[in-house]
Amino acid sequence: MNRMQSLAVAALVSMWAPLGPASAQHEHMHHATPMTEVVSGEEMLRLPDLPVRDKDGVEGGFRSRLPGDRPLILAFTYMSCTTICPGVHAVLMVVDDELGAGEAREATLVTVAIDPVGDTPERLAETARTFGAGPDWLWLTGGPRGTRPLLQALNFHPGPLEDHVETYLVGQPCTGRYTRLRGAVTPDDLVALVRAQPRCD
């Protein structure tokens, strides 16, 4: 799938995702409106260096994978999700384009997988291809042993996978200050927050 095709898919998904398929509407009734309120609040957070694998199966520490001098956008999804997660991926795809590439990249973009069993590197790679993810968009999983400790360290407590709410963290690793966003976040929300982050000396 080329980039233009991916953009067309994302446009359709972003309209469809808040409702999801009919069979899932009961389970996700609290996600059934596109007018979800965005809640944000700044918090201090020390990123853990717990072991993770990326979509290519490469292992490393979570914190070590991230450039220290760029703002950071984290999004929490799981790959078998057919309701809110495709909409989150569609938002991130637009953001991925907006952030630029290479040395001019404005922020580090990371999808954090929350399903410890189903979110294998192969599933991450498949989803990344579907949404035309660029090379600077990281897809990371802690796997069966590491996912829960990683999510706890990031103050994300999903409970049942199907009940999790769209959640993003945007901040600057060198200051440790992050804003947590929940709900129907737009690409403009995320890009504006990135551009408001202080520079690292």
Score class of each variant (00 low, 15 high):
V88Y: 08
Y178G: 05
P160I: 00
E106M: 06
T175H: 04
R129A: 13
L50W: 04
T179D: 02
N155F: 02
P121T: 07
T83V: 15
D97W: 07
R105Q: 15
H89W: 08
V52Y: 10
A75T: 08
D119G: 05
E106V: 01
D69N: 15
I73F: 04
W137Q: 03
I114A: 09
D56Y: 05
L181Y: 13
G102T: 01
L138D: 10
P121D: 07
G134A: 10
W139E: 03
N155T: 13
K55V: 11
D49I: 02
Y78M: 01
F76Q: 07
V52E: 08
A128R: 07
D69T: 13
P158R: 15
I114F: 10
T141E: 11
W137E: 02
Y168F: 15
L109A: 01
T130M: 14
G134C: 05
G57P: 13
L47S: 08
L150D: 12
A125F: 07
I84H: 10
A101I: 10
V112T: 07
A75L: 00
R180D: 00
H89P: 01
H157R: 15
D97E: 13
E122L: 04
T167S: 14
G159F: 04
F76H: 10
V110S: 01
Y178D: 09
R46D: 12
R177D: 03
R63N: 03
V91K: 02
D96C: 07
A101N: 08
A128L: 12
L74N: 04
T167N: 09
A107D: 11
V170R: 08
T108N: 08
E166R: 15
P86E: 13
T175V: 06
R105A: 04
S64V: 07
T147Y: 09
G68L: 03
P135K: 07
L150Y: 03
P144G: 06
P158V: 14
G57Y: 05
T77S: 12
D54Q: 10
C85M: 03
T82L: 01
G87H: 04
L161E: 03
L72T: 03
A104G: 14
E103Y: 09
T175C: 04
S80Y: 09
C81R: 04
E59R: 11
L138I: 08
G146W: 05
C85W: 04
A113T: 05
Q172F: 10
A153E: 02
R53P: 01
E122P: 15
D136T: 12
L151H: 07
A75D: 12
L45V: 03
I73M: 07
R129N: 02
R105W: 00
F131D: 05
M79I: 11
L92V: 13
C174E: 11
G142I: 02
R182G: 09
L169T: 06
R129T: 07
H89E: 14
A128P: 05
W139A: 13
G176K: 11
M93T: 08
E59T: 10
D119R: 02
P158D: 00
T167R: 14
T83K: 01
L74Q: 07
V95R: 06
C174R: 01
D54W: 03
R177A: 06
V94A: 06
T130D: 00
